[in-house]
Structure formats: C-alpha cells, structure tokens
C-alpha cells in the first residue's frame, strides 16, 4: 500500500508540505460505520415510534397534545441523525477543519434565514391592525383561472365532483360515496376537529390582492367570522 510513498523530497514541494500530511485520508474503521448505521436506524425507529405513540396517546386518553411537542421531538431526532451523518459518514470529524467551518457557516445563515422569516410572521400582528384577518384570496385560489369566482378551489373540487357523480350515477351513489369519505376523514386524529378551526395567525398584507386577476373579488372579511367561506366540504364531522 505504501510502496509509492517512499519519496521524501519533491522539487515541486520543497517545504515538504504534503509529506506525512494525511488529514484528508482518514480510513474510518468498518465497526464505526456499522455502529453509525445502527444508530441512524434506531433513531429512525424512535422518531416514527414517537409520532405514532403520540397519536395513540392522544386518542386513547382524549387529550390534546400541543403541536410543539411532536415537532420538537421530530426535529430534535432529525438534528441528531444529521450530526451523525455529517460527522462520520461525511468525515467532518476527521477532516480538514476548513470544511467544517464552511458547512457550519452555511448552517448559521440558514438558521438566520428561518428565524427572521418565522419571527416576522409571528410578530406581524403586534405591529399591524389587520391581525387575525382571513387571507383566503391568495391561499385558497379563489377565482383562479378556469374556476368559478367566489369559491375556493377545495370547495370547487368537491362541488364539481359531486355534480359529476350525481349526473352519472345518481344521488344514492353520491350519498354512499360521501358517507365513506366523511368516515375516513374523521380518522385524522384529535387535532382535526373542524374545517373552520384553521385560521391563519396573522393576515396578509392588505392590498396584496386588490390588483391583478383577483381585483373583482372581496378580499377583506373584517368584522365577521372567517369560517363563513369554508364550511362546505366537510360538513360530516
């Protein structure tokens, strides 16, 4: 293996920078690689188990577990797995530290990016008076090309499918189909109570949809309950 590495003086490298310099060539033992694979599979099992156990627990004891519990367990485990991959499989632990510096400065920028975006979103309501308004015009694709105005796209998909089924197979077929699907929809767990429960924390910038293809549509729901325009599809809950 080292038959070629007998040369001690290189005229192109008179200072001998590279002789004996092996930091880029760590050979990671197979036992380490196997242990890391085992740990990664274990953490995958754990994160799936935690998510399923949480759903089971919430249903069995009829308690509402806050969103952040599920999210922070999942993200915590993902970070540990990512660290294992980066340190051992990608060899950052053994490598030229410059590579680790490059990568961690990138992660710092990503953290800034995510933090500032989320912080802006969560605190917008503290600054502006349209806190809590519904932003359905953009997000629900009301009046998008080819779809009827005044209906969001979810409503449109439901209504047009209903019309099609009734026209082709009759009301009885539709009733049966609707019963089946409403049943399967109620399978979604305890957090999913009502379609009206989803309400954006903050509103979008007013005036955003007052020009362009949405111009003719009502965009503001100030002073009324935001549930008024999306109670159609899942009345079966």
């Amino acid at each position: 293996m080292s038959t070629q590495n007998t040369q001690t003086f290189d005229s192109a490298d008179p200072h001998g920078y590279h002789t004996g310099d092996t930091h880029g060539h760590t050979i990671i033992p197979m036992s380490t690689l196997r242990a890391i694979l085992g740990a990664l599979l274990l953490f995958t099992f754990l994160t799936v188990f935690a998510a399923r156990a949480e759903i089971w627990f919430a249903e069995a004891f009829n308690v509402a577990i806050p969103d952040w519990v599920n999210a922070s367990i999942a993200m915590g485990i993902a970070v540990v797995k990512a660290l294992l991959v980066a340190l051992f499989f990608m060899q950052l632990k053994y490598d030229n530290p410059l590579n680790a510096i490059i990568f961690s400065s990138c992660l710092f920028c990503v953290a800034l990016f995510l933090f500032i975006s989320a912080y802006d979103l969560k605190t917008r309501g503290n600054t502006y008076r349209w806190t809590g308004q519904e932003s359905s015009a953009g997000g629900t694709l009301v009046g998008i090309k080819g779809k009827p105005a005044g209906q969001n796209i979810v409503q449109w998909a439901h209504e047009s499918y209903k019309e099609k089924i009734i026209a082709e197979q009759g009301q009885a077929a539709w009733d049966q189909l609707a019963a089946e699907h409403m049943h399967s929809n109620s399978d979604h767990g305890p957090t999913h109570n009502s379609p009206a429960a989803s309400r954006p924390g903050q509103g979008l910038t007013p005036g955003l949809f007052e020009s362009g293809p949405w111009a003719h549509l009502p965009t503001s729901h100030a002073g009324e309950e935001p549930s008024s325009d999306h109670d159609a599809p899942a009345a079966g809950h």
Binding site: I153, V154, A157, S160, Y161, P195, S198, D229, P233
Partner: peptide, 11 residues
C-alpha cells in the same frame, strides 16, 4: 391550481 381532490376539508 391543478388541485381537484374532492374530499379535502381545509381550503
């Protein structure tokens, strides 16, 4: 706007 699933419950 390609969405056409009839059983969605959230807009």
């Amino acid at each position: 706007s390609w969405f056409s699933y009839p059983w969605a419950s959230e807009p």
